[in-house]
């Protein structure tokens, strides 16, 4: 289990993370939020690359103090998959045959193909599958589907679904189409988690789903209800659903 306890982090004067407390278990955990809300910083705190000024990150009861503490536990795939892929060829990253690759992941690549000759979407998939093959306890993915089409997105989600029972997958994304397929989502806004729960609870109804801007909607709700822009505590799924229902009625 991965636990963040009152994590505060800042690069200079401005706090990027402000008291993030959450617990992530096996399955696909998704961190969503607008640009600049602190998603990537949170991922880098989780992997131990950044040390929070306050609070702590605990993995299976063990405090994480640096990147070295996470070696053998976590694997991190940055938003640019080129920063993760080392092997010059596909076979260097995925140690299985073409037939197995096609049968498990539905992907048909010649294993001798060079990584630089793959398309951007293929490189994203390769990075995710390669990370899965290392069997980490925690798999951390930063924007794994950015700029991908439906087919590539689904291939990535299919690969993650296959292993979601065995590892904690933590993924930062803004892609609402994959958010709804996750096991649990955490809505991050201005460094705080303002809502968390299962997608069907947090993403209420069709209007919300296609709006795609969870946080802006929550902010609208706060304006409607006259609350301060930063909620004092995370809303539970029931409260959030109620807010959304009433907002949709109002608008």
């Amino acid at each position: 289990m991965l636990e963040l306890r009152d994590v505060w982090f800042r690069y200079s004067e401005r706090w990027i993370l402000r008291g993030v407390t959450c617990r992530m278990e096996k399955g696909i955990n998704c961190i969503v939020g607008p640009n600049g809300s602190g998603k990537t910083t949170l991922l880098r705190v989780i992997i131990g690359a950044l040390r929070p000024q306050r609070g702590e990150v605990v993995v299976c009861g063990r405090k994480i103090r640096s990147l070295k503490d996470m070696i053998g536990i976590a694997i991190y795939v940055p938003s640019n998959p080129m920063c993760f892929l080392v092997g010059p060829k596909v076979e260097d990253e995925i140690p299985i045959g073409e037939t197995e690759l096609a049968s498990i992941y539905g992907i048909r690549w010649p294993m001798k193909r060079g990584i630089l000759k793959l398309s951007e979407g293929e490189r994203h998939i390769l990075a995710v599958i390669s990370a899965i093959f290392r069997k980490p306890t925690i798999l951390v993915l930063d924007e794994p589907t950015v700029g991908l089409d439906q087919e590539h997105r689904e291939k990535i989600m299919r690969a993650l679904r296959l292993v979601s029972k065995q590892m904690i997958v933590v993924m930062a994304t803004n892609d609402i189409r994959i958010v709804k397929k996750c096991d649990k989502i955490f809505v991050l806004d201005r460094g705080k988690i303002i809502a968390e729960g299962e997608p069907r609870d947090v993403l209420y109804g069709e209007n919300f789903e296609y709006g795609g801007q969870i946080v802006s909607l929550v902010r609208s709700l706060q304006r409607v209800y006259g609350k301060s822009p930063n909620m004092p505590r995370p809303l539970n799924p029931k409260e959030l659903s109620e807010y959304l229902r009433r907002l949709i009625c109002l608008t």
């Binding site: 694997i75 940055p78 920063c83």
Partner: peptide
Amino acid sequence: KDAVDATEALTLRGVLG
């Protein structure tokens, strides 16, 4: 930035460090 990302990712992969 790429170098930072690569260093972190490769350290966790066990390639560096």
